[in-house]
């Protein structure tokens, strides 16, 4: 922190303010709040300038904590509700908007136009990967021209693995499970299944996306 930052008035923009804001306590709150917004400690010289300054800072810190907790407390105070609001939301979203490309299936008849949607294949890949103990599949991409029968296709998935699983072995299991599922249900020419372990997690309460 440079000494120029220590001049309190520098960080106050009065352009939209009425005169009342320029009184001492208003100014001081704004100056201190700017430091806290930037994640910085206010300079010692400013706090030592007057006993009021430290008291104001303490008050502001308490207030900001209360602010952060306000909504969490609102949520906690909310009585339990039935699931109607969730159902309403889910009834208004459409999986078809994620259908993606159309993956053709072979048939001898000239009037047959048979396909599996890319969205259905992604769902299959997720289910196959999730079935491996201790894993959850995240993003899934089919790389290559899936609309052209026989094109080489690479499947790229991200996976979250529960803490304690052996990552390399788990990735192998995921790869095998996905390959088997695609072989069973589709006619895609899968040349590789790339598994990227993006994070290791315990439970949500211990969620640390390292």
């Amino acid at each position: 922190m440079t000494s120029s930052d220590d001049t309190p008035d520098r960080s106050v923009d009065r352009s939209g303010s009425e005169p009342e804001v320029t009184n001492d306590s208003g100014d001081l709150i704004e100056v201190l709040n700017d430091y806290l917004d930037r994640g910085e400690d206010p300079p010692r010289e400013l706090l030592d300038g007057s006993p009021d300054h430290q008291l104001t800072l303490d008050a502001l810190v308490r207030f900001r904590r209360l602010t952060r907790e306000l909504l969490a407390d609102d949520v906690a105070a909310e009585p339990a509700r039935d699931d109607g609001w969730v159902a309403t939301i889910l009834a208004n979203i459409h999986s078809e908007s994620r259908a993606g490309r159309s993956i053709p299936l072979a048939h001898p008849s000239s009037i047959a136009d048979l396909s599996i949607s890319e969205g259905a294949v992604r769902g299959l890949v997720r289910a196959a990967g999730d079935a491996v103990s201790g894993t959850l599949i995240g993003a899934c991409r089919l790389e290559g021209d899936v609309t052209e029968p026989g094109s080489p296709i690479t499947v790229a998935v991200e996976a979250s693995v529960f803490w304690g699983e052996r990552i390399r072995a788990t990735a192998d299991h995921i790869r095998t499970a996905i390959e088997s599922a695609l072989l069973l249900h589709t006619e895609l020419n899968i040349v590789a299944v790339d598994v990227t372990v993006t994070d290791v997690h315990l439970r949500r309460t211990g969620q640390e996306n390292s």
Binding site: S95, S109, I111, D113, L114, I116, S117, A120, G123, A127
Partner: peptide
Amino acid sequence: VHDFVAAHVPEDTLRTVRIRVSRIG
């Protein structure tokens, strides 16, 4: 679908039968 429709309409009126799998499992 093909066999059912062919039994109800003249053979050559069926142009395309489009079947799409939108979800597996």
